[in-house]
Design a protein around this nucleic acid. Structure first.
Length: 830
RNA sequence: GCGGAUGUGGCGGAACUGGCAGACGCGCUGGAUUUAGGAUCCAGUGGGCAACCGUGGGGGUUCGACUCCCUCCAUCCGCACCA
């Protein structure tokens, strides 16, 4: 046979698949479905190895499931709105649309060169009006349901990106995209009420346990940050003001010795007015505002506001302070300080010489306010707490809350860390927000029949990336749909995470014009059965998608409560110990690998080098090894294919007692079992490929035997055919081109997507003889071969009779003999 | 600081329910073939001369531990004044 030439084979089959639309989904709702999805890419320019790994894992599963007879939907699209397009457009003096569509074209070709089995007829790009129209429609639905609202608030601002960031998009105080420091700024914008769904998002995490990585679920649970506690009102002396605080420890209320407000809290400044602290407070607030996140969190700094509050339970007058460690964004932005039972409060009290009172005593021992260095934060009995003395933990907290409620000065409450999702972006390349600002009517939604509000493509981007929409009269000038007066369109665009929060739904009806997707299609295809992507979206995309899905569920548009039934987060591709990146100069270009070795080699390497969840260390030699393996496959196939022309597979009544033939069949069926199990239940492709390698190695030794014997009979040829077909079929999800080529040479009348995944026969995986390990005191001393149906008693006798074992046991007391059927005998002597 | 994960040959990794540690691949060594190199094929390859020792260290449970328990160490990741 010809030498293995991956490039021509791959081009041939890719053209065939494209021409015959091999992977186009058949609309057959009677069949069991399987929705396989990889996180769609941002069209940044060229694909990288991370993409290759992600899509190869997904494609291998898709191809496997197809052969298993499932109706597989496997689509791909483009997360095509977003800032890099704007930056690139400014830099290259082009338009974001042009840049984006060119990138899509390039990347689509690169992806096609990997031989991925996508249904390209379902391709969507979020920057297409046919897609973002439904973003706008969804926005209007959110608005109708009261889930989208406007507010003026402190927002995260990235000066580099010239835009607002959602809390989820701030990483270590820096922008998730450009890594610049994030500033706080007051601004009005649109928010989605994700907080309304906090409990349902948490409940969902429970149902996903075991199906999603626990790590991702933990991160989401922590992000939502539900905590039980109480809201307590503290009166300010000599005014009508009340400071509301949230505490998880109402049982420590008697130990609240002072209060601390966030510097941004409106009362901080207000309370200082007219006191001698007035000036100092103003200076302090300015100072903290200028502090970056690191400075603000490195050391606690505070200042007395000049005002006093009243502890509602003790009636004592306590000073009100402000300090950098109290955050406006959590709880009420104000705390009651209980230095004896909170480490931060204790640190602060020690630094500023504020009083400390112990109001909880542990079950054993006692703590002393004067000497304690660690706050007592664990549970204990209330002391110095009037009638509450002696109460402990949960019970104590409940009783205090009941008392507060009766007095009308507090109540039990639940607090979340989760904030509403800010979705307004002061950017151009995004979905225009479909509302109109009218001076008479206020905010008026754009009527549905006027959607989409198209993004004007003739806009010129500002030099520093400011959105041209704000100044583009032809865009913003409009009339109010209600009163027809002159009005102004909203000139902000939606966060691109809105686009990616429902694209999996759109894939079920990619070209539908009168709705985002059809209920019928959605009911059949959703949820995504297996979702695959990087861990970096553990919070952002995955939380937003779950939220939007719940809203769609409430709207009756989808029946699923969770969009992604199973999630696999694949590891990074590493080279020289670091993630591949341009700045590190350790990038390997997928195109070059494909050109040099072919896509099948690239795919096999990606799967073989590490299990999907682990990081994968790039290795040029490893790639060589995989290339060598495929060459071996090609060669052994070429050598043996001639022997099995027009030979059938072994049937029910098949019989052949030649040991080499029996061994070959055993190897074949063991391989099927291993590969099937590794893909289906373990998602461990590296061991699946290792199993196929062993089959190939076996075939090479088998070939020597075969060639030395002339006139092999028909039965032997059948067994050989079975082995070769198994090699082709089990390898096909991983290396689809070479296997398709071999399939056509061996005489398959169908392409592999229509072939049935091979079944193993358990009886054929058994041997007549078993190799039993004999141990003396747990050490391996002998291995014996016995007939597979031997009884435990006989096995025991045979073991003790063994000459080598007798050497080890001679003159010793046999205490015990442990027989593990079919495996091992351990003789315990003394 | 809190939470989670991981630690196995020279390297990537196997070992699924406690039962032969190191499958498979890379690398390396020797041989065959070749004018040579490459490619290919065959054999070997945890350490130690051996008894034996070996899955980050120490301890425990067990006839038997990479696997279970305790403890310590290292690396990585996530959260980080969340009241």
């Amino acid at each position: 046979m010809n030498p293995y030439e991956p490039n021509s084979i791959e081009a041939k089959w890719q053209a065939y698949w494209e021409e015959h639309k091999t992977f186009k989904v058949k609309r057959d709702f009677s069949k069991e479905k399987f929705y396989l999805l990889e996180m769609f890419p941002y069209p940044s320019g060229r694909i990288h190895m991370g993409h290759v790994r992600n899509y190869t894992i997904g494609d291998s599963l898709a191809r496997f499931k197809r052969m298993k007879g499932l109706n597989v939907i496997h689509p791909l699209g483009w997360d095509a709105f977003g800032m890099p397009a704007e930056n690139a457009a400014i830099k290259n003096n082009t338009h974001p649309a042009q840049w984006t569509f060119e990138n899509i074209r390039t990347m689509r070709n690169q992806i096609k060169a990997l031989g991925l089995s996508y249904d390209w007829d379902r391709e969507v790009a979020t920057c297409h009006p046919g897609y973002y129209k439904w973003n706008q429609w969804l926005f209007l639905k959110f608005l109708e349901k009261g889930l989208a609202y406007r507010k003026n608030s402190t927002i995260n601002w990235c000066a580099e990106c010239n835009t607002v960031l959602a809390n989820e998009q701030v990483v270590d105080g820096c922008c998730w995209r450009c890594d610049n420091e994030v500033l706080q700024k007051q601004q009005e914008g649109w928010f989605f009420k994700i907080t309304d769904y906090a409990d349902r998002l948490l409940a969902g995490c429970k149902t996903l346990s075991g199906k999603w990585p626990e790590k991702v679920l933990t991160m989401q649970v922590n992000w939502v940050g539900k905590s039980f506690g109480a809201e307590v009102d503290f009166k300010i002396q000599q005014t009508d003001e009340v400071i509301k605080v949230f505490t998880t420890r109402p049982d420590t209320l008697y130990g609240a010795m002072f209060m601390v407000l966030a510097p941004e809290h409106p009362l901080t400044q207000k309370l200082s007015r007219g006191t001698e602290q007035e000036k100092a407070i103003d200076t302090f607030i300015q100072k903290v505002k200028k502090q970056d996140n690191i400075a603000r969190t490195s050391e606690k700094e505070g200042l007395f506001t000049g005002a006093y509050a009243v502890n509602p339970l003790t009636g004592e007058s306590i000073p009100v302070w402000t300090a950098n460690f109290v955050l406006m964004g959590y709880g009420t932005g104000a705390i009651m300080s209980v230095p004896a039972h909170d480490q931060r409060d204790l640190d602060f009290a020690r630094k500023y010489k504020l009083p400390i009172r112990v109001v909880i005593q542990p079950a054993t021992g006692s703590v002393d306010a004067n000497t304690m260095v660690k706050a007592l934060t664990s549970e204990g009995a209330m002391v110095h707490s009037g009638t509450f003395d002696g109460l402990v933990g949960q019970d104590a907290r409940r009783k205090v809350c009941e008392f507060l409620e009766k007095k009308g000065i507090g109540k039990a409450t639940i607090n979340y860390r989760l904030r509403d999702w800010g979705v307004s972006r002061q950017r151009y390349w995004g979905t225009p927000i479909p509302v109109i600002h009218c001076s008479n009517c206020g905010i008026v939604p754009v009527p549905e029949d006027q959607l989409p509000i198209e993004l004007p493509l003739d806009a010129q981007l500002g030099e520093k990336g400011q959105s041209p929409l704000h100044n583009l009269e032809s865009f913003y000038k409009t009339s109010c749909p209600k009163c027809s007066a002159d009005a102004r369109r909203d000139t902000d665009t939606l966060d691109t995470f809105v686009c990616s929060s429902w694209y999996f739904d759109r894939f079920t009806s990619p070209r539908l014009e009168h709705a985002p997707f059809s209920k019928e299609n959605n009911d059949y295809w959703m949820p995504v059965d297996q979702y695959i992507g990087g861990i970096e979206h553990a919070i952002l995309h995955l939380l937003y998608s779950r939220f939007v899905n719940l809203v769609l569920n409430d709207l009756g548009l989808t029946k699923v409560s969770e969009p992604f039934a199973h999630l696999l987060t694949q590891g990074m591709v590493i080279k020289d110990g670091a993630k591949m990146s341009k700045s590190k100069g350790n990038v390997v270009d997928p195109d070059e690998i494909i050109k040099k070795y072919g896509a099948d080699t690239a795919r096999v390497f990606m799967l073989f080098a590490a299990p999907p969840v682990k990081d994968l260390e790039w290795s040029d030699q490893g790639v060589e090894g995989c290339s060598r393996f495929l060459k071996r496959v090609w060669r052994i196939f070429g050598d043996l294919n001639e022997e099995i022309k027009n030979v059938k597979l072994p049937g029910e009544s098949y019989s052949n007692t030649v040991p080499e033939i029996k061994a070959l069949r055993r190897m074949t069926h063991i391989t099927i079992r291993r590969v099937t199990n590794d893909i289906e239940t373990r998602m461990q492709f590296n061991t699946a490929i290792a199993a196929i390698m062993e089959l190939v190695n076996h075939l090479f030794s088998f070939k020597e035997w075969w060639k030395n014997k002339n006139n092999q009979d028909e039965a032997a040829r059948m067994a050989l055919r079975e082995a070769l077909e198994t090699m082709i079929l089990t390898l096909s999800p991983f290396a689809p081109h070479i296997t398709e080529e071999m399939g056509s040479k061996i005489g398959f009348s169908k392409t592999l997507d229509q072939k049935t995944w091979p079944q193993y026969n358990d009886a054929l995986t058994q041997t007549d003889e078993l190799l039993i390990v004999l141990q003396v005191n747990g050490k391996v001393r002998q291995k014996i071969s016995v007939e597979s149906d031997i009884s435990d008693e006989d096995l025991k006798t045979r073991s003790l009779e063994d000459a080598k074992i007798q050497e080890w046991t001679r003159g010793k007391d046999i205490k015990k003999v442990i027989v593990i059927p079919k495996k091992l005998v351990n003789i315990v002597v003394q």
